[in-house]
Structures are given as C-alpha cells and as structure tokens.
Computed example of a mutant assay.
Amino acid sequence: MRTAIVMPRNMHFCKSRATSIDLCAHDLALHSQNKSNLRVFAGGEAGLFDDVDVCAVTPPGKKPTPAKFYDPLSEFGPQLIVVHQHLETAFQIINDFPGTPVILHRHGRFERNSGFKRWKYTRKMNRLGGIIWVGEDARNNFCENFTGVKTRSVVVPNGIDCELWSPAPKANTVIYVGRARKDKGIFDLAAAWLACADRMKALGWTLEFVLAVTDDGEDATANALRQMLSNHQTSVSIETNLIAADVQRRLAKASIAVVPSIVAEGFGRTAIEAMSCGAAVITTHSGGLWEAVGETGKVINPSAPKEIATALFDLADNKPLRNAMAKSGRERVLRLFDIHQIAELYDDMLMSLWDEFVSGPHTTQRLIDHMLVSE
C-alpha cells in the first residue's frame, strides 16, 4: 500500500535539528514492513534523513504550507496519507484528496478552544480516517473535550531502537536532552543545579544540556540559559543541535537524566531514550510522562526546582539506587517500547484504519461532507 507521511511546518526531518516528532516519524518509517511503498514529504532541510525515501516539498530553509504538498502527493499517488500533528494541513489534504483516507498522528494534547471552534473541528475531524495518539493521557483528554468526534482514536507509543540507545561505561554526569524551551523545565533544572552545585561538584558530578534549537525563540532561550549558568562553566556544558549519534553517546555515559517538563507532554520519548541508555530518570508527572517512566523513575512535581535538587543529590549519593533504577528502566523499554514491536503495531493500526475507511458504510457520508462543509 503506497503510504505518504506528511511532515508539516515547524518540523525538521533532518539529522541535526530533528524534534521528537521527526524522530518518531523517521523510526516508524525506517522499521515499517511497508518501507518499500512509503515516502516521507517534508520541508527542505540540510541533511535530510537519507535512510528512508524522502521528498523535499520546499527549497532549503522554507517552511511548507499545506498547498506545497499537493503536487508531490499527486505524483506519488498515495493510497493512505498520514499527517503528523498539524490539523490544518490534514484538513487541506482531505479536501485535495477526498477519496484517500487521511490519518492524523497527534503527539500531544489538543487545545480545548471555544465551543464554536470545537464544533468546527469536530465536523472536520469526523472526516479523518482515524487519529493516532502517542499516549493515553493525550487521547483521553481529547475524548473528554471532543465528545462529538466519532473518528476512531488509537494509541501507539513512541518506540526506539534499543540496540542504538544502549548503555556505556558511566560517568558522574547529569544530562538534559530536549528542546530549548522554558516549558520543558530547563530553567527549573538550572535553578536546581545552582542550589546544589557545591555538593554535586564535591561528589564529582557535572551537568550537560543537549539542546535542540529550531528557531530564533529557542536560540534566545539557549542564550538565556548560558547566561544563568555562566559562573559554573567548569561543571556545566551546553551543546546544541547534535546529530542523533552524538546524542546517543552523551546519554549512554550519563548516570542521571532529568526530564523536568512543565507542559503536559504527549508521551516522553526523551525519557525512554535515557532509560534505554541505562540512566536513572528524574521526571515530572506532566501529561503522558508517567506512561513512559512508570514505576522505574523518580517522579516529582513540575515547576519545583527544590524537588529536582533533592532528587539529584539523593541519586548522586546513592549508587545502588541509581543502578537499580537504571536496570528497571531499561528492562521497561525493552519490554514495552522497542521499535520493532512498536513499528509492527503501527503498521497494523494503519492497515486497520485504512480497511475501515474504504469498506465502512460512512464512505458516502464522507463525500457528502466534502461537498457541504466549507473549509
């Protein structure tokens, strides 16, 4: 089945600036049983992933608008189209390809909005071929707020290659990997480090930030973080836009990983990467992070630098506890989130949604909706 994977605006399907959404889409495509019939459509970037079939729909550096996907998709002739995250791109593609099922792959909660917008979005989302969520928290939140959506919603968590994300000999390193955004809790982690830096340094510990910087706002945030920690350059390092292999090496040797998100995360890919690499994980209970970590991590409140500092010192000073958390964390990822089983589940879900779309009694109604609903 010819399947198109659409990566809309604000995504970076490339080796150095990939977000968790890009990495999720890449890994599912790379390990799909349908890989030979699959093509990814993304904005032009330097260093696009080259181990899957990728079509750049814009020149390098230009953000793709929904209209930019029409000609490349028409030429490919997909039987199924998966749009990651961006609703308006999905709705435009439904209009452009009314006979082709369009699946929306959501990576986080959907904003509730006003009553009118919920009605409008409900009408549109009922024309989707299905919605795939990365976590139960995001799916349940959506179902509670959009009770009129009858489109089938399913959950497929992120998966990772546990052979690539694997432990190495450990250093006394605390690490943060993620976007350079305030709502990811990076300033809370920095404040926690400032509060316990003397004790941590006395035990021989350092802190590493590995930041993804994808726009001017995130660049400004990274610079603000550097300024905040400028007096601790001997114990703190800040790196940006590393390729995946370098991120893996940093995580492999880290003993503690912190995922201090304030925002309600859809899942928690960064957490399972760290767990697979044998790091003891400190995280918040925001959104779906608990689905990733389960009972294997140290879970704290969001926006609580003092709790982060306490957790850091407790783990830094207790190697048996770190080792036990690292062991149980990796075992959890191997059992639940290995990419081979997740990709197989994803393929099965796509085929099931496609079958329902092409054979269901709602096909005629969908065509009527296409004619009646103004976009």
Rank of each mutant, 00 (worst) to 15 (best):
R250Y: 09
A252L: 09
A252C: 09
K253V: 15
A254I: 03
A254D: 01
P260T: 02
A264L: 07
E265F: 05
R269Q: 14
T270F: 00
A271M: 01
A271D: 02
A271H: 02
I272F: 05
M275N: 04
M275E: 01
C277S: 15
C277E: 03
V281P: 02
T284Q: 02
S286E: 08
S286I: 02
G287W: 04
L289G: 04
E291C: 11
E291W: 12
V293E: 04
G294T: 11
E295L: 11
T296G: 02
K298Q: 10
V299M: 07
N301W: 01
P302A: 07
P302Q: 01
P302M: 10
P305Y: 00
E307M: 00
I308S: 00
A309D: 00
A309T: 01
T310K: 14
L312S: 06
A316S: 12
N318A: 11
N318F: 05
K319S: 13
K319I: 15
N323M: 09
A324Q: 13
M325S: 06
S328K: 11
S328P: 03
V333W: 04
L336M: 12
D338I: 03
I339E: 01
Q341C: 11
I342W: 05
A343V: 13
A343R: 08
L345H: 12
D347F: 01
D347L: 06
D348R: 13
M349Y: 08
L350E: 04
L350W: 03
L353I: 06
W354C: 09
D355W: 11
D355K: 13
D355Q: 15
E356F: 07
E356D: 14
E356Q: 13
P361F: 10
Q365W: 10
Q365A: 12
R366I: 08
D369M: 07
H370T: 08
